[in-house]
Every structure is written in structure tokens, then in C-alpha cells.
Nucleic acid binder design. Structure first.
Lengths: 156, 156
DNA sequence: TATTGTTATACTCTATAACTATA
DNA sequence: TATAGTTATAGAGTATAACAATA
């Protein structure tokens, strides 16, 4: 550092104004930060999201979760298995083959810790954003997501 | 559809205002849409980004690329190998072990098609965003990314 | 027969450690 | 010895097809 030649800061960045690229890069960095925040709790981002969703919707079933998270049902299986093995979930029979999921006592304790981790994480993400802008930003992201999802549906 | 009961739209969404979650979900959807856009060209998003960067910076080296894209140098190897196998790249010796990469004639043709695909993709992403807001949005995302990256560095 | 859950599998992207090659 | 590149490998997340179980 300190010399004024042979820096590669001179590289031109074709992605500077590309929303798609910035979106992906930012999402990767944010997910890594969340994973680091959750690491001491022994839970991964995908499992933590599942836990938050079940905590907010006691009695929810796997197919409802899949629709809410826009995840493939098949991919929920190992996540639920891990949470079950941590004694975080209660299962109750529901209609058909469905199982109503809710948090056990252990699960609620875990849920509280996960919520705190998410709050710290959100605070760090949002710190460069005026408080008034945050809801607006989230709404824009949802809109972009829906647009992109429609595009993906057209592909099928 | 059409009945007014037993919908699961009643599920409460704890992620509605969480920027981190919306960021990730949107990024996943956008990346899938980009992949679909690039599919007819026979190139994947990561390879396409590499191609755009080399096109914008003829003579760039792998380590410069890695810093610019915030990628691990090791992960560039298979991408460059695929582009090389498609005759898209010219290699010229540079200082030390470094190799200066630039686009071959085939690479420039591919580059043109990839740019068009990215433009269509960006247009779709940005269509729900007033034109004036786009640069601002990209800047906010870069800022959030830098904040999150700092957090990740603290972890090490 | 439609819905729910599950198994198996593959693909993309990212991360790390350990190695080689070059100045 | 520092920098550039490479190999091998592991992990997280996502996607699909095919299957079993239940009403």
C-alpha cells in the first residue's frame, strides 16, 4: 500500500449498476454474516428460518411451509429432521398424511435465541438504511422477487 | 380456488419486513431467471459474470478477477476452464505466474449475446423500480454488502 | 384419485487447506 | 519469500423425478 502504481483498483466494474449482480453478491455476504451469527447456537440459516416460521404459525404443515418459504417440500425433510433431533418440534396428526408442527419447550428456547440473532443481523443490515426506508426496501425486494418468479414460471 | 375457507394464505409471515430474508429470496429468484435467460447460450451465471468482467478488462489476471468479484481464486479455475474449452479466451503470459486473460473472437461473439441476456434480465428486474431509483438501489445494496462483509471479517 | 410427505440424486455456488510454479 | 495459480474436497442450498401413505 502507499505506492501510486500497479494497483488493480483500476479494474472497471461492469456490475456497478446491475441490480441482479448486486442483489446476489449482497445476499451471499448477508447470508454468511447470518450463518456466523447463528453458529454459536448450532443452527444454520435455513433451519433458523424454518424455526421462525413454525414459531409464528403453530400447527403449520410441511406443505404450507413449503409454499410460504417458496421451498421444495423435499428440501424441508432434512431440515425438519435436524430440528426434530434437537427436540425442538412437536408433531401432531393433522388431516390426511399431514403433520401439524409446533415448537416444543426446547424449541421455544431455541426460537428465542434465534430471534435475537436475527434481530442483531437485521440491525446490522439495516444500519446504512434510514429507518423509514426499510419497509419500502423490503416491499421493493418482494416485488422484484415476484417479477422474477413469474419469469421463471414462464420458462416451464 | 374460489372457495373462501381452508386457504393457507392465513399463515403469518415473520419475514415480511426482514431485509436479509427478502434479499436472499429475491436473489435466488433473480438468479434462476438469469440462468433461464442464459440457458440457450449454454452458459451459467457465474461463467457469464466472468465473461463480462474479462470483456470489460482485457488483460486482467485471475487474482484481479477474484478480488473484483469477491470470489475465491480456486473457484475461478473450473469457470475459466469451461470458457477456455469454448474457445472464448486468449491467454498471454504476464508477470510472474500470472496470465493475462482477454476475449478471443469467439469470446467477443459470446460476450455480445451474454450482454443482451443480462440487459433483458436487468430490464425485468428493474421494471418495478422507477428509473431514477435504480442507481440508488444498487448503491444501497453495495453498502449493505460492505457492511455484511465487514461483519464476516470480524468473525475470522 | 388428489394431496402429503419422503427418498434418492444431481447441480450450482461457495469455502478451505494444501500444493506447485514463478519472480 | 511473497504472489499467482491449482487441486482436491467439503458444505449449503436448490431442483427434479419417482415413490409411499392417507383421505
Amino acid at each position: 500500500m502507499g505506492d501510486n502504481f500497479s494497483r488493480d483498483a483500476a479494474i472497471s466494474d461492469p456490475f456497478e449498476t446491475m441490480l441482479g449482480f448486486q442483489l446476489r453478491r449482497t445476499s451471499v455476504a448477508a447470508t454468511a454474516a447470518l450463518a456466523a451469527e447463528l453458529d454459536p447456537i448450532g443452527i444454520r440459516p435455513s433451519e433458523a428460518s424454518l424455526l421462525l416460521l413454525i414459531g409464528a404459525n403453530p400447527g403449520v404443515t410441511q406443505s404450507e411451509i413449503a409454499r410460504a418459504l417458496r421451498a421444495q417440500p423435499a428440501n424441508l425433510v432434512p431440515l425438519i429432521e435436524r430440528l426434530t433431533r434437537a427436540n425442538a418440534l412437536d408433531r401432531a396428526p393433522a388431516r390426511g398424511r399431514a403433520v401439524a408442527l409446533s415448537l416444543s419447550a426446547d424449541g421455544q428456547a431455541l426460537h428465542a435465541r434465534v430471534r435475537e440473532a436475527f434481530e442483531r443481523h437485521e440491525a446490522r443490515i439495516a444500519r446504512s438504511l434510514p429507518a423509514k426506508r426499510r419497509a419500502e426496501m423490503a416491499a421493493i425486494l418482494r416485488q422484484i422477487c415476484d417479477d422474477a418468479c413469474c419469469a421463471n414460471r414462464d420458462t416451464l
